[in-house]
Every structure is written in structure tokens, then in C-alpha cells.
Simulated assay, not measured.
Amino acid sequence: MSNDSKLALIVSDSAKAQDGARALLDSHPWVPANEADVLVVLGGDGFLLHVLHDLLDRGINKPVYGMNLGTIGFLMNGPLEDGETMAGRVVEAHRVPVRPLCMDAITQSGQKFSYYAFNEVSLLRETRQTAKLEIRINGRVRMEELAGDGILLATPVGSTAYNLSAHGPILPLGSRMVAMTPLNPFRPRRWKGAILPESAQVELRILEPGKRPVAAVADQKEVRDVAVVRINATAEKELTLLFDPGFTLEERIFAEQFQV
């Protein structure tokens, strides 16, 4: 980025983000998003994911700098300090490429849906009945039956979110790996999941779908009563996040692994 980069401000509807935007409006000559070189996003992680998905849907690839005015803000940067400018922050920021997973889901009625996920794709039981899944990787059956609450596949960016809460592994950025983590597995009870190369083609088939309905969720998009779900990483949909020096996403991933 250069000092001449044009910046656009995209703000969450939350009161906190709106207040923060008012404080920034006069600090920089903002431009409309379609004219900008960089998008500055105010809000939380959920709103940032919403913006990334909107860019994908519109076929736009512009670097995104997030500023935390939400709750956790793992994917965001901190607020401006006294004497700092937004232009200066953006110029010094590090670029981090993020690749989404593509989820292709087919429902029991034969409908087909395709959605992208920057954090994770989750398969979750819809009722009190345990979900039963067959796991295929690169066309080969690797597990004939997984019984439990479901399963998820997480990107390195998403490995510290739902995946970590489900006791899945944290993946370093740039590892080009995907974490496959079971959710409360009943059979096989001691299976902890797997780490797969990003190139792996994953297919999850729902066993007894009529009795044991399963929903598939790609970040914020849900498909209910699925029969088959296919998941793979998509390099051609890569986007870019910007992070402050010393507060990079990679540093935060390291920190998560050494918390006590």
C-alpha cells in the first residue's frame, strides 16, 4: 500500500461501530467503496466475514483492513492511538492471503447449493437423533460411519474459532492445511479428527438422512436436510486481509497456542 491509496469506510450497524465511524469521518478523505484501493471495515469478526462474502459474491478483490469495534475481534486490528492516522496504519500493514472453502451441498430432495466459508464448514444434527456420516477423501472411504453431533472442516483462519472450541488443532497460516474435527463423537469415541492438505477433496454422506437429518453451514449460510456435502479449498477465490505490524494474525495464532 502507498500513502496515495484511496480508502473506503464500511461500518457495521452496531451502535459501537457507528460511534467509531463518526469519530473517523473527518480524519481522512474517504471515497466510495467502488473507487477505493483498500476497504476499512469497522465492527466485529462477524461483520468482517459478511464483507468478505460480499466481495466474493461481487467478484471484487480489494485488501480489507478491519478495526475492532465489536466483541472478540480476532480478525480485526485495534483502535487508532493518539497521533496515528488511518492512512499510516494501512501503509504499514502486512498482507495476509485468505482462501475460503467451497461447500457444495445436495439436499434430500435433490436441490443443490454452493457457498464459501472463510472460517469453517460445519455439519450439525438437526434433531435429538445422533448424526451418522460417511467420510470420503479423494474418492476413498476413510471412515464408514462417524456417529455424533456432527463434524467441521476449518481453514487456518477459522482453526481458532469453533474448531478450537471443539478441541480441534490450531493451524499455522500458510500451512495450506484443513482441520477436520468431530463434534462430540459417540462412535468412534476416541477419534480426534485429522489434518488434511488443502488439496484434499472431502465428501461427507449422511447415513439414514430421513431419521437423522443434518444441516450444513458455511460460515453464515445454512442448508438443511442435506444428503451429500462436498468440500474443497479454492485458491482462485483468495482475498487479502491487512494486519498491523506486531499484531498480525499469525502472531495471534501463536498466542492462542501458549495461553494457560
Rank of each mutant, 00 (worst) to 15 (best):
M1C: 10
S2N: 11
S5I: 08
A8S: 14
S12C: 10
A15S: 11
Q18R: 12
G20F: 02
L25V: 12
D26R: 06
W30Q: 06
E35P: 09
A36V: 10
D37G: 05
V41H: 01
G46C: 14
F47L: 07
L48M: 14
H50S: 11
V51Q: 02
H53Y: 02
D57G: 10
D57N: 09
Y65N: 00
G66Q: 06
N68I: 11
L69I: 08
G70Y: 07
T71W: 07
T71R: 15
F74N: 01
F74C: 09
L75R: 00
N77H: 09
T85N: 03
M86F: 07
A87M: 15
A93Y: 06
H94M: 12
H94F: 14
R95C: 08
R95V: 15
P97C: 07
P97K: 02
T107P: 08
T107E: 00
S109D: 12
Q111V: 02
K112E: 12
Y116E: 05
N119L: 12
E120K: 04
L124K: 02
R125L: 07
E126I: 06
T130G: 04
K132S: 14
E134K: 09
R136Y: 10
I137Y: 00
N138R: 02
N138M: 08
R142P: 07
M143W: 01
G148V: 13
D149K: 02
D149I: 12
G150L: 05
L153D: 01
A154D: 07
G158D: 06
S159E: 05
T160P: 12
P169M: 05
L171G: 07
G174V: 14
G174E: 08
R176N: 15
R176V: 10
M177F: 06
A179L: 07
P182D: 03
L183D: 01
L183H: 02
F186A: 09
G193H: 02
I195W: 00
E198W: 06
Q201K: 13
P209Y: 05
V214T: 06
A216E: 01
V217E: 04
V217P: 04
Q220M: 12
E222W: 04
V223G: 05
D225T: 07
R230C: 10
N232C: 12
E236F: 03
L241A: 00
P245L: 06
G246Q: 05
E250W: 08
E251K: 15
E251Q: 15
R252A: 14
